[in-house]
Design a protein around this nucleic acid. Structure first.
Lengths: 102, 102
DNA sequence: AACTTGCGTAAGCAAATACTTACACATATA
DNA sequence: TATATGTGTAAGTATTTGCTTACGCAAGTT
């Protein structure tokens, strides 16, 4: 059972959940209300997001509030950024080449 | 059968392939040599990467060279950037708060 | 104390995934 | 022409995934 960020954000439902809690923390039922899916299904998705560090769960009485953790998403951004730099330079070179006076 | 970038980069082997061709285009066998896996397996991974637009295939005689296409990876970066902005502001606010003179 | 609410988890299941081997086929080389 | 090389694809398979329903349990409410 792989459990990394790339795997976690591969699922559209989980990306939706991230989108929901990114700007406000919500409890599990509030999240589940947004989906045409059983509550346990959402519970399992949240478990996965939690296990790979994309969210924190704050217990408040019988409710559990999901709070986004951005650092892990940043890891993905960093992975992409490696190529981004190289690619931007390549595009710059191309542009310079095209702008060369004949 | 879903076929989007998030799904494509979820697999570690495919991320490795991206890493290999990001800086130099390689033919299929050259890519397959890097893995403890059958050539057809790699062929299938490349098919997926191709179908979701992460690479181009340039035919040269009997060889097929895989060339990275960065734009699709950029889509993932953009998705993350939405939260990045929000999150950075939050961190800035926190920092300002901590730096406040008492 | 009984009931409601919010949730986790187990069991079951269909579909997807990531491989394998076997084969086909075009392109180069002898 | 015969052979080697580079590759795609089909079929088979074990494992993983994403759901479901059923149940249990602790925290609040009556």
């Amino acid at each position: 059972m792989r459990r990394d960020v790339f795997q976690a954000i591969a699922d559209p439902t989980r990306r939706e959940i991230i989108n929901l809690i990114a700007f406000q923390s919500l409890n599990l039922n509030a999240i589940a209300d947004h989906f045409d899916m059983s509550r346990p299904a959402i519970s399992q998705h949240i478990k996965i997001l939690n296990e790979c560090g994309l969210l924190n769960i704050r217990q408040d009485g019988r409710e559990r509030f999901c709070e986004m953790r951005f650092e892990k998403l940043q890891e993905v951004a960093n992975w992409i950024a490696r190529y981004q730099t190289f690619w931007n330079n390549k595009l710059d070179d191309l542009e310079r080449h095209l702008n060369q006076k004949p």
